[in-house]
């Protein structure tokens, strides 16, 4: 079943076009990886889906419902779509637990005591139970990024977006974050991920999209896209990074 549909999406900053008539379908439970050079529009695309960046034209449909109507309040939509950033963006003045609890407390009006069992379970699941009371600057990059993922998951989103979430990490910390994604995948979470981790994309993705100049130039299952790319630019990109 298709879960998220983007139709002729357009977004420009000033007169620089970043997303230029992009179409994409994401099926329920699928992991879609966006690859492409820096500046190809991967991050902007994810921010547009979460409505952090208003789109100029086109449609975004979630569960068959147009969520991109500029007249509508984006806030309820954002609650249904989790976004994790490259630079973690944890709130530095709050403990890990407070970071995770803030949104459910304010939006779902749940008390800390009501939230604690579910949130403790999330921390346990991702191996962070000892770090709930730590502040972000007391955590390693990998731990911070996992807290950021938990923070997004705590709102029980229907779909998760990941914006190069391992790019700011030391190589030895990448694995622990990717493990979290494998877990989410096995639980059937729908995910869209911008990444430079080609090995991971090949292993886990259901679909890989090659972005170029704000459009999807080529897409397909990872074996096809990595094994037998059709477009010369895809070939050039892959031979440069692999």
């Amino acid at each position: 079943m298709t879960h998220l549909v983007l139709r002729s999406l357009k977004k420009s900053f000033g007169n620089k076009s970043v997303i230029d008539g992009l179409d994409l379908q994401v099926n329920e439970g699928d992991m879609v990886c966006l690859i492409g050079a820096s500046g190809s529009g991967k991050s902007t695309l994810l921010r547009c889906i979460n409505l952090l960046e208003p789109i100029d034209d086109g449609f975004i449909e979630l569960d068959g419902q147009d969520i991109s109507d500029p007249e509508r309040d984006p806030q309820p939509v954002r609650q249904r779509i989790g976004l994790v950033f490259q630079s973690f963006n944890l709130f530095p003045h709050m403990t890990a637990e407070e970071n995770v609890m803030l949104a459910p407390r304010r939006i779902k009006r749940l008390s800390r005591d009501q939230l604690r069992p579910a949130i403790t379970a999330l921390f346990n699941r991702f191996g962070l139970s000892e770090h709930m009371q730590h502040y972000p600057d007391q955590l390693s990059g990998g731990q911070q990024q996992r807290v950021a993922i938990i923070r997004a998951l705590a709102m029980q989103p229907e779909i998760m977006l990941f914006d190069e979430i391992t790019s700011a990490l030391d190589p030895e910390l990448v694995g622990e974050v990717l493990d979290v994604l494998r877990q989410l995948k096995s639980q059937g979470m729908t995910m869209v991920m911008a990444t430079h981790e080609m090995g991971f994309a090949r292993e886990v993705a259901d679909k890989v999209c090659f972005l170029c100049e704000g459009r999807i130039l080529e897409q397909g299952p990872p074996e096809a896209l990595f094994g037998n790319p059709q477009q010369p630019r895809t070939k050039a990109f892959l031979s440069a990074v692999l």
Binding site: R78, Q79, F91, I107
Partner: peptide
Amino acid sequence: QRAAALSLGL
């Protein structure tokens, strides 16, 4: 920081 908070739906 603002983006992170807004993205959660706050």
